[in-house]
Amino acid sequence: MKQTPSERKPGAGEIGAIRKDRRGRTTVALVYPNRYHVGMANRGDCLRARVPA
């Protein structure tokens, strides 16, 4: 059965997410003040493209 966005865990099925070892690095929590499916439609994620590279 096809899952609707609200049933799926936020982040499931993503392409391009980067997970880095946090040790010794400055950690930034980029917060979108809305739920996942609204926040990810926001262009703010474009900005992230060049922060972690």
């Binding site: 690095r25 400055t26 930034v28 739920r35 996942y36």
Partner: peptide, 17 residues
């Protein structure tokens, strides 16, 4: 230039529930 190597950026959102 971005000091990208020294930075970890992770995302957080308003909780679903």
């Amino acid at each position: 230039a971005w000091p990208t190597e020294e930075i970890v950026c992770e995302r957080a959102f308003l909780p679903e529930e």
